[in-house]
Amino acid sequence: MAQPISNRKALHEWQLYLFVLPSLLLVLVFAYYPALSAIYHSFFDWTGGDFKQFIRFENFTRALGDKTFWASFITLAILVVANVVKMIPSIFMAVLIHRLTSDRWQYWYRVLLVVPMIVPGLVTLFIWKFFYDPSLGLLNATLDATGIKTLLVALDTNVLQWNVFREGVPIAWLSEPLLIIPSLILWGFPWIGAVGVLIYLAGLQSIGTEVYEAADLDGASSWQKFVYIEFPLIMTQVRLSLILMIIGSLKDFGLQLLLLGDGGGAGGRGMVPGLWMYNRAFTAGEFGYACALGLILFVFILALTWVNNTYVRVEK
């Protein structure tokens, strides 16, 4: 904790305020001012220029009836559920690395984990987009070579009836409306998040040898060790990543924007709430409405953060 200070001494140390002043000014101008301006403009019909018209709550009532907006929340919900499942490989990886007996290997695997982080995110994104390319992409090549394609075709004709997997026709991952959400879910396979794994590893490190020895004496299986020893210890970190992931999903739309365009791809199937806000502002020029959508998103994020702070205890 910072030292308490008497008012007289604080007066004497007034120069200290100069230390925080530049940061404060920047934050006020480039974060708080835009935020307040967003609240203000959400009550206006505003196209970004000088002209604006006060329309009370019209933007918000319009948002309530905006089918695209609410459909985008359903898409978001599907993606969030998928993201929860996509957290499992990172936990699995952390446990695998943690249980290795060799310190050296543990270190080198950590280094390998970080390697994907040093390739710019956009580069990874575009390479993955290239994987999805119908004629040149690796995904279709792999599916053809392994025979999974035949399986998918059979699945499609007999069960799904989507008519998206056809024999002899390259699968159009990113332009077939029905395949857009599956493509987004498959994205980033095998879903190892470097930061996640490293944070879980840090949590696992607090387990002492004697705990494992005791478990061995009791004849605990690997799975039991995971359920009773390892998972409870990284529970805090898992919860934290979970809440950060959900907040991140609400905020981010970069992937959808770059992959599918500002319309959310064919049939708008990849439209998420953030992207719809971006679309309204920069495609339709409805800046006032976009501000209102942004505010609604902010309320959701705030509520989630409140849930997080109330129900999820994070030790510092």
Binding site: V29, F30, A31, Y33, P34, A35, S37, A38, H41, G48, I247, L250, K251, F253, G274, M277, Y278, A281, F287, A290, C291, G294, L295, L297, F298, I301, L302, T305
Partner: peptide
Amino acid sequence: LMPGVANIVPLFTL
């Protein structure tokens, strides 16, 4: 906590 998305539009005009 503040989502960048809500700020982008006014930040642009600023």
